[in-house]
Amino acid sequence: MIKRVVSQFEEGFLSLLLVSMTLLVFAEVIARFGFNAGIHWAQEVTLLLAAWFVLFGASYGVKVGAHIGVDVFVKMMPPGTHRFFTLVAIALCLVYCGLFLYGSWIYLSKMKMIGIELEDLPVPKWIPMSILVIGFVLLIFRFLQLGWKVVKGEADGFHFADEAEESMELAKELQETALGDEPSINKNTKEGK
């Protein structure tokens, strides 16, 4: 139950960030071309949304296996070795996160101490920048979760997103609908096999 709420929140928030970015830039075009006006805070906000989108999304990407990597070699190994290397890889990912979390914390504290505001909005700069720390904490959490799954034997790798696999979804969808309204060439889709 909680899992579903968290998932929905993550998905909704990530989509919202992308959609707001798109609409904000689109609105700028409309304002400039249609109404001869500018939105003076649009640029800064769009860019901060982009930072949130990437840094918030990275951990969600680990959860759903949206990141890409080279797994041809580990996949050729026996399952035990594969899992061992995956655990090493996850440990290194945690090292990466730890280093960045530490650096981000110092950076953020310094910015908070100096206390300057954003260029175009009366908001202290450290607040939008806090996504650095939030993002890496979430990322650590997701890597630990994945590591635990590998230890328990529920997973053996990062389950990288496969553009090929995703494209196959499109193929499946087309095959399902092809029979109906395509009299010229698609009557016997299955004959290909």
């Binding site: 890409i68 990597g69 080279v70 890889a89 290194l92 990912c93």
Partner: peptide, 14 residues
């Protein structure tokens, strides 16, 4: 890092 199957992004960063 890439050979042992780390995400490319993390491998680059690390």
């Amino acid at each position: 890092c890439m050979l042992i199957g780390m995400p490319i992004a993390v491998a680059l960063g690390l």
